[in-house]
Amino acid sequence: MHRAAARGLLLGAEHVLAASRQRVPIAEGTLERSGAVSVDEQSMTAAVSYDTPYARRVHEDMTARHSPGRSAKYLESVLPEVSGEVQALITAQVRRALGG
């Protein structure tokens, strides 16, 4: 069951990453491509991150102008919107492991 929950956590984090990639500001696409997911099965935590020297600055700069549909807070803003879907992904994996 632990392994199934970890799989659900990975799927949920990948869902968050996909949603945030729809909002990440694009100049050359480097920031968008740097997005990654990691899961720590011991602590049952997942992380979604963007790995460029300017990722944090772009995420936090609410004064910058971006293309339509793209915005600062590109990661933070999607979390409340997809939390139900993330929970459903985790629940589905656990149910599958329980045979239901």
Results as ranks from 00 to 15, higher is better:
12 G>Q: 08
24 V>D: 03
69 G>T: 13
28 E>T: 15
66 H>G: 04
71 S>R: 11
64 A>P: 02
96 R>S: 12
87 Q>A: 15
77 S>W: 00
45 T>Y: 11
84 G>L: 04
11 L>K: 15
71 S>V: 02
55 A>L: 03
20 S>P: 13
59 H>M: 03
79 L>P: 01
40 D>F: 08
20 S>V: 08
100 G>S: 05
7 R>G: 09
98 L>F: 04
57 R>C: 01
13 A>D: 09
61 D>E: 06
43 S>T: 14
72 A>G: 07
44 M>R: 07
57 R>F: 08
21 R>I: 01
25 P>G: 02
100 G>Q: 12
35 G>F: 08
57 R>H: 12
93 Q>Y: 00
63 T>F: 13
64 A>S: 13
68 P>T: 01
33 R>T: 02
52 T>K: 13
80 P>N: 10
90 I>Y: 04
53 P>M: 10
83 S>N: 06
86 V>P: 05
87 Q>C: 01
86 V>L: 07
87 Q>I: 05
66 H>W: 15
62 M>C: 05
6 A>Q: 13
58 V>P: 08
100 G>V: 15
90 I>A: 04
3 R>D: 15
31 L>N: 11
53 P>V: 05
69 G>D: 14
15 H>A: 14
84 G>V: 05
86 V>G: 05
28 E>V: 10
65 R>L: 13
22 Q>M: 15
69 G>A: 12
27 A>Q: 04
78 V>G: 01
50 Y>W: 15
72 A>S: 12
54 Y>A: 06
35 G>R: 06
86 V>T: 10
70 R>H: 08
95 R>C: 00
63 T>H: 08
9 L>I: 14
93 Q>C: 05
49 S>L: 06
71 S>E: 11
69 G>I: 15
45 T>F: 06
